[in-house]
Amino acid sequence: MTAYVTVKGLSRVFDVSKPWLNRVLERRGKAFLTAVSEVDLDIEERTTYALVGESGSGKSTIGRMLVGLLRPTGGEVEVEGVNLDRETDRAKVAKVRGDIQMIFQDPYASLNPRWRVRDIIVEPVAVKSGDTEGLAERLLEQVGLHAADAGKFPHEFSGGQRQRICIARALASEPRLIVCDEPTSALDVSVQAQVLNLMSDLKEEFGLTYLLITHDLTVVRHMADRIGVLYLGRLVEEADPTTLFETPKHPYTQMLLNAAPRIDGFGREVDPPQGEIPDPINPPPGCAFHPRCPIARDICRQERPRIRPLGATRVACHLAE
């Protein structure tokens, strides 16, 4: 099987400097935030690749670069063998872009409140002057809503129903890859189960590939075929769910798995992890995790670990074995 998406050395730096005048008056230099730093990953066709990480880990930034909402500062993204930033054949790029869709976190902000559901769903097709006759109605039925809902406005729906509408919009242009950015973190548990099941069903039915971006480890375990763990914009570990959850190799993954609350963890006395995520504008030298790492040595403070294969896992840690 060949990789559907190939990401090589992907980086994104944001200029977070204050305005020019403030910089001059306060005698400060420019400030840069490295949101994503040299990430390599492959996504196989018809699989779900999950990116997990806490806030500031760069997981959403990677998703936005993949769909073309942001341009990478470094590295490359190849989808269907087409390098999206270098390819000069516009038609080719447009074709690939059309195969990628996205589902967002906030079901309240991702639907235009002034548009009827029908217009929202068919917009991706209408832009390319495709055939939209009955399309919205068909898609609504497919995501478990009613055809009659097409004439309503978003505010008439609950959060879970809105997320179904978002999924219907994403499906409208018949994509092959859907980037799902925290698709259920704004939803209640029982509704989350409905949406996750729907996503699984649609994946089977349409042969979709998902890039699932989330901070929720339980969702990842349930949905993913392959999991990448991000810390401060760096990919620190990658494995299949069973391997990752049963034998985590990176100290950060171990900490994360240990700290996450469990519904069967009654009165569990966790040894809470130390410290917090460092400032991404001035990340620690060497391994970004070393200030919080229980087993850090000198080399961790000096040299940034490369990601390397280790059994069924890829891990970026000097000491993992």
């Binding site: 609950s158 879970g160 129903q161 209640d188 548990v189 029982s190 509704v191 989350q192 189960a193 409905q194 996750l196 099941n197 699984s200 480890l217 339980t218 969702v219 375990r221 349930h222 769910p241 069973t242 959850f245 798995l257 996450a260 469990r262 519904i263 069967d264």
Partner: peptide
């Protein structure tokens, strides 16, 4: 009961989540 069954678990993968139909 439905709430507990629809919560995904980190300790084991479930094939399909239980779902409570409808919404509040």
């Amino acid at each position: 009961d439905g709430l507990m069954a629809s919560t995904p678990l980190a300790s084991q993968a479930r094939n399909r989540l239980h779902q409570i139909p409808g919404s509040m």
